[in-house]
Structures are given as C-alpha cells and as structure tokens.
Design a protein around this nucleic acid. Sequence first.
RNA 1: UAGACAAACCGGGCAAUUGCUUUCCGAUAAAAACGGAAAGAGGAAAGUCCGAACUUCAUAGAACAGGGUGCCGGAUAACAUCCGGGUGUUCCGAUAAUUCGGAACAACUGACAGUGCCACAGAAAAUAUACCGCCUCGACUUUGUCGGGGUAAGGGUGAAAAGGCGAGGUAAGAGCUCACCGCUUCGACAGCAAUGUCGGAGGCAUGGCAAACCACACCCGAAGCAAGGUCAAGUAUAAAGGUCGUUUCUCUUUUGAGAAGCAGAGUUGUUCGCUCGAAUGAUUCCUGAUUGGAAUCGCGAUCUUUGGGUAGACCGCUGGAUCCGAACAGUAAUGCUCGGGCAAGAUAAAUAAUUGCCAUCCCAAUAAACAUUGUUGGGAGAACAGAAUUCGGCUUACAGGUUUGUUCUUAUC
RNA 2: GCGGCAGUAAUUCAGUGGUAGAAUGCCAGCUUCCCAAGCUGGACGUCGCGGGUUCAAGUCCCGUCUGCCGCU
Length: 136
Amino acid sequence: MKLFSLSKNERIKEKKNIQNLIQDGSSVFSSKNSLKAIYLIKDSNEPGVKIAVGISRKAGKAVWRNRIKRLIKNAYRINKIPLVNSAKENKKQILILFTSSGYNELRNKKLDYREITEEVKSVLDKIERKVSGRLK
RNA sequence: UAGACAAACCGGGCAAUUGCUUUCCGAUAAAAACGGAAAGAGGAAAGUCCGAACUUCAUAGAACAGGGUGCCGGAUAACAUCCGGGUGUUCCGAUAAUUCGGAACAACUGACAGUGCCACAGAAAAUAUACCGCCUCGACUUUGUCGGGGUAAGGGUGAAAAGGCGAGGUAAGAGCUCACCGCUUCGACAGCAAUGUCGGAGGCAUGGCAAACCACACCCGAAGCAAGGUCAAGUAUAAAGGUCGUUUCUCUUUUGAGAAGCAGAGUUGUUCGCUCGAAUGAUUCCUGAUUGGAAUCGCGAUCUUUGGGUAGACCGCUGGAUCCGAACAGUAAUGCUCGGGCAAGAUAAAUAAUUGCCAUCCCAAUAAACAUUGUUGGGAGAACAGAAUUCGGCUUACAGGUUUGUUCUUAUC
RNA sequence: GCGGCAGUAAUUCAGUGGUAGAAUGCCAGCUUCCCAAGCUGGACGUCGCGGGUUCAAGUCCCGUCUGCCGCU
C-alpha cells in the first residue's frame, strides 16, 4: 500500500453513494469558506475513506474545473493519513464530497496550490475531530 | 534593416520527488493488491454552423409538404468547402482618357408566370399622369381672367420620375430624325462553358425589392454512440407449473381493532429456546343434519422453469476517405504509385502536482555606443484553451516565436 | 454528447420593413394640516454585439456573446 496514493478504491464511483451523500450527509466549510465538504460517517466492516470532487458547471470552464479538481485531489492525498488512521481505529467508513463554494473562475483565475492545501487541511481536520469524538 | 500585410509552421525544454489512466510482463484457476516496462490532449480538442461514415427505425415505388443550394468549369465520399476562370461593385494608384494596373468583396437564376410592397414628400411610385411652366384656340368685364386642346424640354419632391448627351426639327415639344454612349436582339469568330471581340438590326418597349410570397433547376427519409448490440444482481417484477396453507378467540352497529397461533422467516452449522408472524373468501358436490371431507376459482407462502429487463459489466471504441517522405500527372485544388510508421481511449470521467535550472520577456544599474550589444541584480516564466463514436470543412478565441513572399505609400541607414 | 427557446426603458412585457410603445417604478407640480390614494406633466433606449440585403432594419439573412430549459 502506497502512502500518498489515490487509486480507484479511494474514490466514490457509484451513483447511489453520491446521492445518499447529498441527501443524508452533513456539511463543513473550510477556514476561508472557499471550499465546502459534504460528509457521511457510518459503521462498516471495511473501514476507510472515500472521496469525490464535484465542481459546478457554473464555476468556470472545463480547463479551470479540471485544474481545481486535480489540485484538491492532490492536496487530499498528501494530507489524508491522519484521517484514514482515525477511521480505521474507530471502524468507520467515511464518504466525503468536496465542492467549491467560494471559488469560481471570474474571481480566482489563477489557482494557488498552497492556498488550496490549507483549505483542504482545515476541512480534514474538522472531520477527523468528529470521527474521533473530540468535537461535540 | 525595421514596420505593415499575406501564407505556412511552432506554440515551451531538462532534471528530481510524489501521483493518475490504459496495455503488457512478473503469473498463476481467477480476482484484488504489489513491482517493472511502454504509451498517454489541440491548433483550435471549443462553438455545434454545414457535409459524410456508422447504427437503429421505416421500406413496393413515387409524389406532395417542409428544408437547403443557385455565374461557369474542375476537385472531392460529400458539402454552404477548396482550386481555376468570367462578370459586377467599391477602394487605391497612374493617366489626356470612357484607358491601364493592383487590392478587397459578392445568396452572382428569374421582376413581360402570377400575387404583393414602395412610408413621408410629390401632379404622378407603374395601365403613366398635367401642379407650376411652355405653345395654341375660344369667350369675356382685354398689361388680365376663365374654359378647351397640344406638350415630359425646364421647375419642384423623393432613395428612385419612364434611356443619357449634342445637333436637327417644331406653334411648343417629343427616338420624331441623326451621330456617339448605354440597352435589347441576330449573326460570325475565340472559348468545354460562363463570357468576350467584331459586324448588323431594333428605336427604347419591361423603375426597384425575390436575404417579400413565389417560379425554375438541382439536392435532402427520420433520429442520433445518452445510436445500437451482448450478458445480467435484486424478498423490483410478468407468465406457467408443483407443494402447503386459507385457523381460533375477544371487542365493535359496520368498516375494523386486539390477542393467540399454523406454514414460513430471522437469530452462528444443528437442536431447543426466543423474536417476527401471511392470506378473503366464494361456488358446487358427498353426508339425514352439524362437524368433517373433496373439486373449481380467488388469495397467501414457498420451490422450479421461462420472459422482458433496471443497477451494473462488456462490445460499439479506435487501423482510418489514416499519418510521414519521395517520384509522376495537373496552372491549382487534388489524384495516383512506391517506401516507411501505428501514435490517448477515460466514463462522478486519466494525461497531474511541487521544487530547481534554462530558453524567452520586463525593470534597474553599469561599460562601449548610430541602431544596439555585453555584464550584474531583481521580477515573471505566461495566450486561448481539455479528447468523450470517428472523419472533411467553416466560424470564433489566442501571449510569444520561426520561415517565406509583397511593399506605390511609413521610419532609419 | 445531443436538441430547443429567449435577449427592447430601472422592472414586466407589446411592437405588419417606414418618427420605438404600454403598465409598474422614478422625478416635479396640484390636492392635504401631514402622509397615502387621486389628477397633471416630465425624464428614462448602443432594441445583447458585429457584419450584410434594402432608399430605409428592433423586424429579413449570416456570424458571435450571454442566459434559460429539455433528453439520462
């Protein structure tokens, strides 16, 4: 198992999962409110974390949308280890869907990787605290 | 030389680390995970504006409706594309010129098949008509007024006024007559043709708008890979068949409610225990009658078989009107022959991120200096934009760069 | 990926090729002790943008931009 990988098993592929997530999941905003994450925590025999990234068509053009998705995925796979460990300890399966709430192409034509990393980190931190029960 | 314009081409490179998708190998019965190797966005992948391939539907053929195209010839699988030619319009330059040269653009068939429109102004906007004017005749109250007739040369209106201009002619005028120009038409010649040149005739008759309806000629069946095909989970569900069941009590006017409980299900493989716990009955027959039993239909459970087919998987899916090079044919578009190459195939959707260096660009300082070049320091390191069945075009977006050509006009030497 | 619709005043919409309109809103005046209502008047337009056809284009044709809807 590679440390920083993000293979097919760690991404949400099924339509049903995503619909469940949108219906039943709760949401969390990043520290600067530029990202929004919908997440769902449930007990499972196969503990782990699965993610998806969804960017609205209205946010920007195809090149821009692809780029922000890649940056978010990249930031996640670098910083995922604490959350994954916590999920395994507590025997939970976590589904996360990242979306853009503050970002769009008009305002953020050039995307800065470091800024997005900080945003993703803040989201993961909040969810991790929920999982381990340190946050009420 | 720079600039401008046109055409063609490129549109970042190298290294390290961390990752993604596909294929192959380790490699097996198969899958997952792991390791290794190879490959992995564009000139517009975009807009979806045209044209095709392909697939399904429909299909005996044709027409109508509807849509598209519209100078001529060629290229092509096809096209609204491309190439060559003609004609016209506009602009620029030269010129004595109506001539010559260059560039750009053109939906560039038909207005005597028909219907329609042409605001305002104007007498009149299409069967010509007579407001002012010009000429003439008559009457009267005679420097004038009224009435009849001739007249499209002049005025005024308009985007547009019934060939233009000059001469003859006339009461005044009029292609009424003539020359030149334009137009229509006939013949000869050149050209495959559009058309052009020359000669003759007509005597001007048919103002504009078909990107108004329309007519004529030619073309088009419809939908689109979310097309379509194969496999196919489900206590999702249709049909057929087999087996078992369709019970008891209490309350309520009824609908119904509650309890027990059979089949069955769940609970660790089995047993016990525990939990949950389906259904609607109707008709006929056997029997003296009740109980009970049987048959048919309905209902419920369960098993088997079959069907369509959702989720999903696979095929379609990338080797093709293909790409590169050379020779030949052709003015060219392009064709043809030979040689070589195989180069994305994702599906909540891969092709990336970070760091360093470089090409390149900007700013400052400094040395030489006509433009400009070298050195040092700092900054940026980019534009438009992301395959989605596949091709041929068109259109639109685009930082910077390379090559070739043109330059009457710009600047510098 | 494919198909369709719309763009006109601040807003919602009309508008046969011939001087761009209505309602609401806005501003001013009248009315009222004041406000509202009412009455009178006024301002407000790159007809999304760029070409073309025409004497003349919001309207016809071509291109382009933006917004919206549908197909699963």
